[in-house]
C-alpha cells in the first residue's frame, strides 16, 4: 500500500485555498484508518512560506515544486509537478480539489500514470479495507458509489467537507521537476466584467431555470414577481447558456454567489454548481415539477407543481397583500 498525496492549491491572492484543508480532513480520516502516511505538494514560485504553513496545519511533510515557470497555473507544468510528487511520496491516492485548475490537470496526471481517475467526490470512505468513492451523477439527480484499482487520482468537490483545523509537524523539501518544453502558455487572468447587476446586495432574488421555457416567460412571469417583492431576477446556467438572460444574472459557482433573505427558485432542478451559489440564502422557496429535483434538498419550502400555475396568482396575492 502507498501513501496519500495532497495537492495544495494557491489562490490568485497567494494564499492556500480553503479547499486544500478540506482535502486534509479527508486524508486524515483515511490515513488514520488505513495506516497510510500523508504527504503534500505545493506548486508555484516562491512557495516556501506557504509550504511551511501547509506542513504545519495538517499537510505533513510537504514537497515544494518551486519554479518561476510554475508561478501561474499551466497544465503541462503542473501535471509534471504532480506526477513527480506522486512518485517522490510513493502515493497510491492523490487528492486534488475539483477546481478549474484541478479538473484541468487531474485527468492528465491519471492518464500519464495509466491510473484510475475519479472526479468531484463528495466523500471517500474506507469500507472493509477498501477505498470507496461517493460522487453525484446525472447533474445531481443520482449518487454513485465507486471503487478503484491500483493508483487512483481523485478530485474532491470544494465545500463537501469541513476544512481541517488541527496541526501537523511536517517538514518541507524541494522537489525537482523537469520543466523544459512546456507547450501551454499562461497569458492572463481576466477579472469578471463589472455590470449593473449586483445580486449580492439584493434582499430578494427570484431565479428561474430551464423550466421557464423561453425568455418571454421571464418577462411575463418572473419579472412581475421580482418587482412586487422589490427584488432582483436571477437565473441558472442553462438560461444564460441559451442566451435568455445575460451572464450577469447567473447564480452559481461560475456566476454570482448570493445569500438574500428570500430566494425563490422556479423551474430550477438544482445542479451542484447552482446550489453552491445560493444555498446560503436565509430562506429558499423552490417550485419544480419533479419531486426528486435536488433543489428541494436545500429549500426550506417546496411546491411540487407547475410554476406557471403558481407564480402568477402568487404575484397577484402579494400585490394585494402589500395594499
Amino acid at each position: 500500500m502507498g501513501n496519500i498525496l495532497i495537492v495544495a492549491e494557491i489562490t490568485n491572492t497567494g494564499a492556500i485555498r480553503e479547499a486544500s484543508y478540506e482535502l486534509v480532513s479527508i486524508a486524515r480520516k483515511l490515513a488514520d484508518a488505513s495506516g497510510r502516511d500523508i504527504k503534500s505538494v505545493v506548486i508555484g514560485s516562491g512557495v516556501g512560506d506557504l509550504a511551511a504553513e501547509f506542513a504545519s496545519k495538517g499537510g505533513g511533510d510537504t514537497l515544494m515544486a518551486d519554479d518561476a515557470a510554475l508561478s501561474d497555473y499551466n497544465v503541462d507544468g503542473f501535471s509534471r509537478a504532480i506526477s513527480a510528487a506522486r512518485e517522490a511520496a510513493d502515493a497510491d491516492l492523490v487528492l486534488i480539489s475539483n477546481t478549474p485548475a484541478g479538473w484541468d490537470v487531474a485527468p492528465r496526471v491519471a492518464a500519464g500514470l495509466d491510473a484510475a481517475y475519479i472526479s468531484d467526490c463528495f466523500n471517500i470512505e474506507l469500507e472493509d479495507g477498501n477505498l470507496v468513492f461517493y460522487r453525484r451523477v446525472f447533474n445531481g439527480k443520482l449518487d454513485a458509489q465507486l471503487s478503484a484499482e491500483g493508483v487512483v487520482v481523485v478530485t474532491v468537490q470544494p465545500g463537501a467537507t469541513e476544512a481541517y483545523e488541527g496541526s501537523s509537524d511536517g517538514g518541507t523539501s524541494a522537489l525537482a521537476v523537469g520543466l523544459d518544453g512546456l507547450r501551454t502558455k499562461f497569458v492572463a487572468v481576466e477579472q469578471a466584467e463589472a455590470t449593473g447587476v449586483d445580486l449580492s446586495k439584493a434582499d430578494v432574488i427570484v431565479a428561474g431555470g430551464r423550466g421557464l421555457g423561453s425568455p418571454e416567460k421571464f418577462e411575463e412571469v418572473m419579472k412581475p414577481l421580482a418587482e412586487v417583492l422589490g427584488g432582483a431576477m436571477g437565473a441558472s446556467r442553462p438560461v444564460v447558456d441559451a442566451g435568455w438572460l445575460e451572464h450577469a444574472y447567473q447564480v452559481g459557482s461560475s456566476g454570482q454567489v448570493v445569500s438574500p433573505k428570500l430566494y425563490i427558485a422556479a423551474g430550477i432542478s438544482g445542479a451542484i454548481q447552482h446550489l453552491v451559489g445560493m444555498k446560503a440564502s436565509n430562506f429558499i422557496v423552490a417550485i419544480n415539477k419533479d419531486p426528486d429535483a435536488p433543489i428541494f434538498e436545500v429549500a426550506d419550502v417546496g411546491v411540487v407543481g407547475d410554476l406557471f400555475e403558481i407564480l402568477p396568482p402568487l404575484t397577484a396575492a402579494l400585490t394585494e397583500a402589500k395594499g
Binding site: Y117, L142, A144, Q145, E297, D300, V301
Partner: peptide, 23 residues
C-alpha cells in the same frame, strides 16, 4: 480500473417542507 458499484437516489436528509393543497 474504475468500477461503479451502485447508483442510487440521494438520501433525503433536509427535505423541504412541501406545501400541498389547491393552488
Amino acid at each position: 480500473k474504475v468500477k461503479i458499484n451502485k447508483i442510487y437516489i440521494p438520501p433525503k436528509s433536509d427535505q423541504a417542507e412541501l406545501l400541498e393543497g389547491s393552488t
